[in-house]
Design a protein around this nucleic acid. Structure first.
Lengths: 192, 192
DNA sequence: GTCTATACCTCGATAGAC
DNA sequence: GTCTATCGAGGTATAGAC
């Protein structure tokens, strides 16, 4: 079997992992291709044999970051059961501090908004997946109501983490997360 | 009375307005000092007589953008009355499309998160003002509950606009805003 | 205070050896 | 495929004339 192919795919994966981590932490513009490649154990020269441009890498990295995030693992494992636990894990300081693999929806929201279509398309697909997952876990209700509820909880989760990260006061950041956990929890229980 | 002083203050204000608009639209890194100064009707050379660095300008521009936003005008005028109207004006496509002066909390959330302390401090102060305003307009309840409710609604507003801006599907963006308006409205009415 | 001009640097992207 | 080397563009910040 031809393993060079395997090798290249492997390298590609390492580049994507490095990019997802660095972009989430520092933003797209503050990470150079050289830094991404160094994170993957390579030099910058060979980047363009894997991706046509830095923006193209970004689009794939958003998707990849979503796949690597803790949220995604819960999404894959859990049967939409115990959304409360999902909420608690997401709206947590270990997430804000990037001590667990970060969710690109929260870490790159305003960064993605100013990019070209490809990047925003990737972001949109990830967002839809989250909403669909939340929706499946909601107690019975009208389709329209559950759809709105799922979207609002998604916005609350993303907004909570994104804002928490921007605050320069740790106490306030924790208080915000706690508030979103509680109110979000209520919304998931369906007290309409 | 010495009016050169006045003149300089006026120029300073124009620079801040230009910066707030451009940073909100394109992000801090994608706006050059030359562009900011051109927006204020000047050339880039005189920038450093007004601000010590680009980052220092950013910190003040965040505060200034908050002051200029439509939200701020409602905050100043309204006596925390009719939060529903505030919500509807904020979670609106004219805001997302920047057809009204944008709120930096939503437009710059992840952009601010990666900057130095001064910028994040300015962001934090603006956020606290929004939360305090929401809190005053809430129906009677325990202090702790109203505090959490106000913070969650703030996160929902900011998250709703920020994510809506990142989506590449206009229909989905509008649906998200509508969902946040409805659920946010419920939270403000205090159905605990 | 504002202008033009420029020093100095970083970065995205490409070329060519191995 | 990966490396080193480099081109060219664009940016922050400073210098000096007016």
């Amino acid at each position: 079997m031809a393993w060079p192919r395997q090798q290249k795919q492997n390298t590609r994966r390492r580049i994507l992992e490095s990019a997802a981590r660095l972009f989430s932490r520092h933003g797209f513009d503050n990470v150079s291709i050289e830094e991404v490649m160094r994170g993957a154990g390579l030099t910058h020269g060979s980047f363009y044999t894997h991706f046509p441009s830095k923006q193209a890498l970004y689009a794939e990295a958003v998707t990849d970051a979503a796949r690597a995030s803790t949220l995604a693992k819960l999404l894959a494992a859990g049967e939409s059961r115990d959304l409360q636990q999902l909420l608690a894990g997401y709206l947590d300081m270990t997430h804000v501090r990037q001590e667990q693999p970060p969710c690109p929806l929260a870490f790159l929201a305003t960064d993605v908004a100013i990019r070209e279509k490809g990047v925003r398309g990737a972001y949109t697909r990830v967002f839809r997946r989250l909403v669909a997952f939340l929706r499946r876990g909601l107690p019975a209700g009208t389709a329209a109501d559950n759809r709105e509820r799922a979207m609002a909880v998604a916005a609350l989760m993303i907004g909570g983490v994104a804002v928490s990260r921007a605050l320069d006061d740790e106490r306030a950041a924790e208080a915000l997360l706690a508030a979103c956990r509680r109110i979000g929890g209520e919304l998931l229980e369906g007290a309409s």
